[in-house]
Amino acid sequence: MAECCGKNKAKAPGESCGCEKKETVLLYACSGGANVAEVADQAARQLTSQGSGSMFCLAGIGAGIPGMIQTARDADVNLVIDGCPMDCGKKVFDKAGLTNYVQIKVTDLGIEKVKVARATEEQVATVVAKAKDVLAAGR
């Protein structure tokens, strides 16, 4: 859970906390069963662990959980990593009435959708690099 500034709890009351200026970047990955979904998922997790953003719940947006939709609405950046041209993640956002997102698609990056194959490190790295480019361009 991304607390606002738990690490600064020990500071004096009223003292400004460093997290105030931090941009909220939320990452959503395709949750399908094919390899491209695994690539999207692994890329989102890697981006999260590298500090590029925080992976968030695409299913929660799809389910219409109000707190999650409001979280997405208030985020500075929502990056949807779709697996294939079905654009499910994008459609979930559109259906929820959320327009403040950018989308990348695994199959647009030269990665073929194959039902039985597993994600490779190289594929994940390709998506991570693209996501970083997109996030950097938006700033």
Binding site: M1, C4, T24, S54, F56, P66, G67, M68
Partner: peptide, 10 residues
């Protein structure tokens, strides 16, 4: 988290 919130404050 029961509110579906992962970022605070809210």
């Amino acid at each position: 988290m029961k509110f579906g919130i992962m970022i605070t404050p809210a």
